[in-house]
Nucleic acid binder design. Sequence first.
RNA 1: GCGCCUUUAGCUCAGCUGGUAGAGCACCGGACUUUUAAUCCGUUGGUCCCGGGUUCGAUCCCCGGAGGGCGCACCA
Length: 498
Amino acid sequence: MEEFGKTEAALIAARRENLAALRSRNKDPFAQRRCEVNATADELVARYAFLVPGQDASAEGWSLAGRLLSKRTMGKTVFADLADRTGRLQIYIRKQDVGDEAFADWADLDRGDLLGVRGYMFRSKMGELTLHVTSFVAIGKALMPLPDKWHGLQDVEKRYRQRYVDMIVNPDVRDTMIMRSRLIAEMRRFIDERGFYEVETPTLLHVAGGAAARPFVAHCNALDQEMQLRIATELNLKRLIVGGMERVYEIGRIFRNEGIDTTHNPEFTMLELYAAYWDVSDMMDFNEALIAHLVSTVTGGGTDLPHGDGPISFTRPFARIEYLDAMAQYSDGKYTRDVLLDPAGAQAIAHELGLPRSPTHGHALDKIFERVLEPHLVAPTFVTGYPVAISPLAKRRAGDPEITDRYELFCARMEISNAFTELNDPDDQRARFEAQVAERISGDEEIPDPDWDFVRALEYGMPPTAGIGIGVDRLVMLLTGQRSIRDVLLFPLQRQHG
RNA sequence: GCGCCUUUAGCUCAGCUGGUAGAGCACCGGACUUUUAAUCCGUUGGUCCCGGGUUCGAUCCCCGGAGGGCGCACCA
């Protein structure tokens, strides 16, 4: 046998030798087409919880499949760990049970290989539920060496770039992603139950609107036109309300060509939902019920989520504060309605707080809000009554035209949802778009080009409607206790490198 | 964009004002029929992120660059 050093190439070569050995005995793992499976790790652990150490259930045979994560060999017996999508199960193999030839095959299995096993359950002397293997078959080979069995993969960059390795050796990553999948399924079920239609609107648009953000641009060869990736689904979903669908939602990918940090990824997932004949308070009820339901899902029926500074309670009703009242309250009465709603007054406050000069009144208000209010919003709180200056698509409040029927829900200092009674007056909408054109000219590059066809749609008549947007990734962060958005995304964006 | 930190074996990490690198795990060989980070014995493994500079000599000091993380800025 050739002498190998232990570089990565040598580790791969050793695994290839084992593969060749299996093939020479007609046990090629890659020749396997399917694998009989009638149980999962979790099912077996639950089913045989009653077994006492030393006791077995040899009358009942099971087949399962998964990845070999560790081997503990003691001469003629082996304990090993097999992981499937539900978790880990210890397996036990004896030479006297499987025979010399199969036991030789076992020696050619490496950590990371995929295999199917048959056997029966017992509880080992040390108390662990274990599958006593009567036969096994290799169904795939890991030619690449796995990271450290104890420390797993810690290199953050490698974890994101090679998420498949991360998931193999760091089970909590897989758990988080599975929880994300469940939460989105649960969200969908909750919404569907209430008579909403799920729709899919275009990602490629000529004019990306519905939010203030810089879009990604793309070129369509067939049309020879520049396209933008959507920054929101809002305008198209409201077109569907005009069209008569009445209750629609989309859980869709949104693209914003902006910064990347622990709460921002250039592409992210947003739930937007619109209900004809509802107003913002109907939506608030819906929102509260949805969030409480998801908290219950993740906690197994509870109302509290663990958090850094102690648990956060999601007992209904959530707190409610008026935007202007809260601003006054947290500034000892200094930031009054009159000052905030005056563009010069808002700029003066922003300056006093040491914030950079804002290009628009709305921008300044947002900066002040983030500095003054957001740090206090740990418990779930609906902030209601946003100024019209920062709500270009929301309906004005009856009897108070400078304020809109809008709220945002905050938890753990993060904005979780944004909802309002939709503006359905086409003349008001056109006027606000025109005002935005002026703001764009004055330097706010994030203000999109107006979507004039949207105004035309409103001219055909949109019923009173409430709409909501929920940042799904941030909600999953909150519900799973992850501190970085990258830890709830399967493949967060990374710079390409050579 | 700015600042701080970081990059050393397949993985996790050490490395002393500057003298051409170590450990654990993994791997390979051996012992072992209820282990669980199995254990014990023996071996093996390096583009010290890249490019310059200073120096007799650079993983280490200096300059530039790349990747990543965090904070700030940006981001309703």
